[in-house]
Simulated assay, not measured.
Amino acid sequence: MSTPLTYDDIVKNLDDLPSLPAVVMELLNSIDQEEVDISVLAKKVSHDSALTAKTLRLANSSLYGLQVKVTTIQQAITFLGFQTTRNLITAAAVTGCFAEGRCEGFDHKRFWRHSIATAACAKVLARQMRFNQDYAFTAGLLHDIGRLVLVACFPQQYAQAIAHRDAHDCSMLEAERAVLGIDHVDAGMALAEHWNFSDTMRLAIGGHHDPETPGAGFLAAIIHVADAMVHALDLAQMPDGLVPPVSTVAWTALALNEETCLQLFRETELQFGEIAMVLLS
């Protein structure tokens, strides 16, 4: 059995991780600020042609139902608004940021399928709750980002955790704690700190498994329920088909009925297909 890892071990390894384009870091750091010079940001993003292409494909997807075809970042901002465009840029950048295939048993594509499905579901849920859909989408996309940190920094140990999960038929969270001594929530929080995520994002990542923790915030409850719904729908076709237990506190806070749930499922499935096609192609 390997020596348990600590939070400090993660922090020490964060500098070895791939870094996001500078403009994306700027976008993530400014998520809670209203005053941002949009034209300057649009210009900066357009210098990265791959990022621009992916962002515009998302903007033109049926997810947003635009009647016009947008061909520049500035146009996307005009038609979709700054918040939404910032989200799309973040989604396009983060999904292309981590290298694949360094950890035995970890399926990179399935990981992103689950994250994208959670983002889609969180966005639909947020609209239902009259909560900021853009925060929900980004938090849904990044809620499990700590797994990528563990896979990138400690591939051998994480492979052991995956083997442990398969052998003991437990959740990945339990397997991480048993084998590594820490879990992907700890790793996600370390990365959120390192990448200067806003407090809003940090709380959602930190609380998505325990939304009843005091101060976890409403966004954590949305991500928690979206995560469970997506597991139930099995959009990512995960080998560990376990649906995580849903917190009664979070479920009660969202006050969903059966009819609303069915509608959420339908919309999530539709949006997921569209977003996955753009982000994972």
Results as ranks from 00 to 15, higher is better:
12 K>A: 14
153 C>Y: 01
199 D>F: 02
150 L>N: 03
36 V>I: 11
247 S>H: 09
228 A>R: 05
264 L>I: 14
85 T>I: 06
183 D>Y: 10
79 F>D: 05
227 D>P: 09
3 T>P: 02
146 G>C: 10
143 H>M: 04
197 F>P: 01
39 S>P: 01
130 R>F: 03
218 F>N: 12
197 F>W: 15
124 V>K: 12
23 V>R: 07
80 L>G: 11
240 D>T: 10
211 P>E: 03
159 A>M: 03
9 D>M: 02
37 D>T: 09
136 A>T: 02
269 E>Q: 15
191 L>A: 02
15 D>G: 11
127 R>Q: 12
259 E>V: 11
10 I>A: 09
180 L>K: 08
233 L>Q: 10
246 V>S: 08
161 A>R: 07
66 L>A: 04
257 N>C: 11
146 G>Y: 03
83 Q>S: 15
237 Q>R: 14
198 S>H: 00
251 W>S: 14
136 A>K: 01
100 E>P: 15
132 N>I: 00
44 K>W: 01
24 V>E: 04
271 Q>G: 13
205 I>E: 00
87 N>A: 10
57 R>H: 07
165 R>V: 01
8 D>I: 10
94 V>G: 03
262 L>G: 12
226 A>E: 00
100 E>Y: 04
237 Q>N: 15
220 A>D: 03
84 T>D: 04
19 S>N: 14
221 A>C: 14
272 F>N: 14
86 R>E: 03
45 V>P: 05
88 L>C: 09
255 A>I: 00
212 E>K: 07
186 D>E: 13
60 N>I: 01
116 I>D: 14
44 K>E: 15
131 F>Y: 15
156 Q>S: 12
26 E>Q: 15
82 F>W: 15
191 L>Q: 01
227 D>A: 06
127 R>A: 07
248 T>W: 05
200 T>A: 00
127 R>T: 03
175 A>G: 09
173 L>T: 10
40 V>K: 14
77 I>D: 09
210 D>H: 14
36 V>Q: 10
